[in-house]
Amino acid sequence: MKKRILLLVLFISAFSWGQVQLSEGTPTQTIDFSSTVTGVSNGAFTGTGFQATPTAGQLDSDAWAVTGLSDGALAFGVTRITGDYARGAVNSQQSTGGIYAHTGAPNSVANPCLMFQPSGSDFSPGTITLRIQNNGVGFINQIVASYNIFYRNDQASSNTLNFSYSTDDTSYIAVGALDFATPVAASGTTWLQEGSTPSRSTTITGLSIAPSDYFYIRWNSDDVVGGTRDELGLDDISVTASFGPPSAPVITSDLTASGFVGVPYTYSILATNSPTSYNATGLPAGFSINTSTGVITGTPGATGTF
């Protein structure tokens, strides 16, 4: 019995670390695909796939999710160590769709880049998502995210690599200022970095991520001009959190509403930052609010503005 209890404790501990961890003591994490980041990667990436307990050279699938590959989606925690997800390490242009470790200049075997080769059935469109967890004691109010973009503009086509974020892994907010697309006109086989380091950076404010809750950042790719597609790369992903008290909710539902005398009426208060309770004052006679859900109900008995 003691052995079983110990194994359960170890499993829970390992599972809780399977994503990017941010706390007051460690507010910044950088993923450069060249070293181990607990819960994210195991050593220098070698293009050999994803699993929840990664071997050397693999990425931790508890932190990564992928869509758009012909071998099927990678959900968090799932094993994908063959085919599209494990195309290996390369230092030159490719044509087979999938995920690679790019080791050619300015990268190297010791300092690779996460590379995607889009094709007609791979990553066009597609997404790769990185899961981040608040491992602190305060709320995360702000996240600064930056990363480097690489590409090989060897084809007369154009592919995007755009950024978005989410607090629930369902509704994503695009950051248009970070959009990137490879040039349509081919320019050669050199592996290029977009701009200077970092290629893209953004500050995400107004957050209220509670301890143990998650935050998600995503890169989306699709065709602008199809055909044989350029290669894309991500490297040096950095996330820095600022901690504090919960951010105040902001009402997002309509601030005015109307009904009809004698007809039952329902109105739902919607707000950001996960309110824990609701209230309303000045309600008409016969109306009430559910302080747990924010739903106001009642039947108007007279005309008026309230």
Rank of each mutant, 00 (worst) to 15 (best):
G227F: 01
S166D: 06
V109N: 13
G195L: 11
D122H: 09
N273M: 01
W64H: 13
L255K: 15
I128A: 02
S274P: 00
G259I: 00
A174L: 07
P300G: 10
V184R: 13
Y214I: 09
G49I: 02
V263A: 11
G233T: 07
M1F: 14
S157A: 13
A285E: 14
S70R: 10
A105D: 10
A75F: 02
T53H: 04
A73W: 00
R229F: 08
A86E: 09
T305A: 09
I140D: 00
L270G: 10
F139M: 00
S16T: 14
S124N: 15
G136K: 03
V109R: 09
G98R: 00
R152P: 03
Q93T: 15
W64F: 15
G83C: 05
Q155M: 06
N148Q: 15
L234E: 04
T281K: 03
Y165D: 06
T203Q: 13
Q51F: 05
A101S: 14
F15H: 14
Y165Q: 00
D236A: 12
L8C: 09
D223Q: 13
T160S: 13
G138P: 00
D213V: 08
T67G: 02
S238T: 15
Y165C: 03
T252G: 11
L69K: 00
Y100G: 03
L207N: 02
V109E: 12
E194Y: 15
V37H: 01
D236G: 05
F139G: 04
R229M: 03
W17G: 12
A86R: 02
G77L: 07
V9L: 14
T272H: 02
